[in-house]
């Protein structure tokens, strides 16, 4: 059984947001537009946030890409009254869109605030609709959505591997964000395979997880900026 995980190397990440756009194009996430974006209706399954601190000239600025952490103990799934979100056997916290009734308790209980809601019927100009990915489900208004590690890609890769009667190679399947990251700051793979890149990196001395103290056991690991880690 696979256990999918992601590693984000903050030392390499430049805050370029290619991952953000890649995710939106892959997963048919429309832009919200100016007014809606200011009301917080823009959906960023992958969200690059920044922190600026200090005073001139001792300024610091850091970028942090935040997808869903795919918690192993997800606080979001428990609270859903209709089990529209659940952790699948491969550890992905998935959303059963047609079942979601939109109470948004999962949203308010996600400590990482990475769940997004369809405040309106998602819409694209007619022309853009030609460019929609047919592999992802069309989320209607009134339901919740989130990063699912590009589950459609994983499923496809699994089908292929099954047909070819072999095991999945490390790095054979990557989500859209990982595939595009220009500085190669994102890694994706099977945490159950001790030899996979993500497994090894997740044990790096630079590795940490967000809000570790909450016991949510995220499967997204970060690598700290700055110091060299020989253990890699």
């Amino acid at each position: 059984m696979y256990r999918w995980g992601m590693v984000i190397d903050l030392d390499k990440c430049t805050g370029c947001q290619a991952c953000v756009v890649a995710c939106r194009q892959e997963n048919n996430i429309p832009s919200a537009g100016e007014e809606e974006a200011h009301l917080g209706r823009a959906k960023f399954w992958m969200n690059v946030v920044s922190e600026v601190k200090g005073n001139y000239p001792n300024v610091e600025m850091h970028f942090l890409p935040i997808p869903c952490m795919q918690c192993d103990r997800p606080p979001c799934t428990m609270v859903c009254p209709v089990a529209a979100t659940y952790k699948n056997p491969e550890g992905i916290v998935a959303q059963v869109y047609p079942r979601c009734i939109g109470v948004r308790m999962c949203i308010s209980n996600c400590p990482y605030t990475v769940r997004y809601f369809n405040w309106y019927e998602p819409s694209w100009p007619e022309e853009y609709q030609k460019g929609l990915n047919p592999d992802v489900y069309h989320r209607r208004k009134g339901i919740t959505e989130k990063c699912n590690f590009c589950i459609q890609r994983i499923r496809r890769a699994k089908e292929k591997v099954k047909k070819e009667k072999r095991k999945m190679r490390d790095g054979e399947v990557v989500p859209a964000c990982v595939e595009t990251c220009p500085s190669e700051a994102l890694y994706f793979g099977d945490l159950n395979d001790p030899k996979s890149r993500v497994s090894r990196l997740s044990k790096s001395r630079r590795a940490f997880r967000l809000l570790e103290e909450m016991g949510t056991e995220p499967k997204v690991y970060y690598l700290k900026e700055g110091e060299w880690d020989v253990g890699e």
Binding site: L39, G40, R104, I107, S108, T113, Y116, N118, W119, K141
Partner: peptide
Amino acid sequence: VWGLGVTGMGHPMSW
């Protein structure tokens, strides 16, 4: 008809 977008809610103010 239009969706919950007609309220003042958004991310992260969803309740």
